[in-house]
């Protein structure tokens, strides 16, 4: 429909990555811990904190156990793929830039109906929210466009612009298909042989749906949740203890040179490790939820526990950034 030779799934990914690389983005690899959305990757969630500008783009496989359908529903997936772009701060006329990216993947804007409809994003567990739009193309939501306002309960300055493309939906749209599984993933240039999304990923959908809904061992999941939570909490406490001890030591130091080791110890504190533990908790929670193991009453409580971790990590990340900029240590 959108041209004679619509892009394959992998060409779609290449094209968008190239587009954003050409517009100054660092291309990062997908994060290798389970996340429910590209927003949860530290490349978004943590990098939007603090004053340092960054433009970054990456594909992010996103797992949502409760959305699994054993590969039987043509429009829902246990694991879908987002292309996440973070522009901090967002450039002027960022919407136009986004529309150019659509042209790059073969969408002739004059041939379609495109609308920016209000859609505000919120991730209460991360104390994060923003305002923006869902971008509608011929009635299909293809992108979530958000101006981050707060993260970890902290106001952001500068803010970040976040563009999240739903790659399966866009590929389905470009290739004019009713089922995700029919999407042409790749085409061998030599033989013309095509592999479909179903051939590449169906077994994953089947097996992970079965795991999430039928096999995952609930008592073990609860145990995992507690272990991850305990370790994350311990790290958070250690961070603040380290800050206390460093500040005390610094008071005793008089020369600037002596501060370098302190800065080094602060830089090496594993905030990113603490964040991975919090992400593990979040994914474990989602699995428990898919297993139907969390009652509505418990739900609020467990979410509050994970929120404490995620927001706690955001706080120490911001503090670490502040303390390790030279002016803060002098």
């Amino acid at each position: 429909m959108a041209g004679k030779n619509p892009l394959t799934f992998q060409e779609l990914l290449f094209t968008l990555q190239r587009f954003w690389a050409e517009h100054g983005c660092v291309l990062q690899q997908p994060y290798d811990v389970e996340v429910g959305a590209g927003t949860m990757s530290p490349d978004t969630f943590l990098r939007v904190l603090g004053p340092k500008p960054i433009s970054i783009a990456y594909a992010q496989p996103s797992r949502r156990p409760a959305d699994g359908r054993y590969g039987e529903n043509p429009n829902r997936l246990y694991r879908h793929t987002q292309l996440q772009v973070i522009l901090k701060p967002p450039p002027e006329r960022v919407q136009e830039l986004y529309l150019e990216s659509l042209i790059a993947i073969g969408i002739d804007l004059a041939q379609h109906d495109i609308k920016f409809e209000e859609d505000n994003w919120e991730w209460p567990v991360g104390g994060a929210w923003g305002v923006g739009w869902q971008v509608m193309l011929d009635g299909q939501e293809i992108t979530q466009f958000t101006y981050f306002q707060q993260c970890g309960g902290m106001d952001l300055d500068p803010i970040s612009g976040e563009i999240t493309y739903g790659l399966e939906r866009i590929a389905q749209f470009l290739q004019d298909l009713d089922s995700i599984y029919e999407i042409v993933w790749s085409r061998d240039p030599a033989t013309g042989r095509e592999l479909t999304y179903g051939q590449v990923r169906l077994h994953e959908e089947q097996q992970f749906s079965a795991y999430s809904f039928d096999y995952a061992d609930v008592p073990s999941l609860w145990k995992h949740l507690e272990l991850y939570e305990d370790e994350c909490k311990t790290l958070l406490m250690k961070f603040w203890a380290l800050v206390d001890s460093l500040l005390t030591e610094r008071e005793r130091e008089t020369s600037f040179a002596e501060c370098a080791p302190l800065q080094e110890r602060m830089l090496r504190f594993p905030t990113l490790g603490a964040y991975e533990l919090a992400l593990k908790c979040s994914h474990t929670f989602n699995l428990l939820d898919a297993r139907g193991a969390i009652s509505v009453t418990e739900r609020v409580g467990v979410m509050a526990r994970i929120r404490n971790l995620v927001v706690g990590v955001a706080k120490i990340y911001a503090e670490q950034g502040r303390l390790t900029t030279p002016s803060a240590l002098i």
Partner: peptide
């Protein structure tokens, strides 16, 4: 209701797109 002037060419494309979404 679209935000673009429709013609014979784009109307068919936009219609198909919307129909597919509704079907899903």
């Amino acid at each position: 209701v679209t935000n673009i002037a429709l013609n014979a060419e784009n109307a068919e494309v936009i219609r198909q797109g919307n129909e597919r979404v509704l079907r899903a």
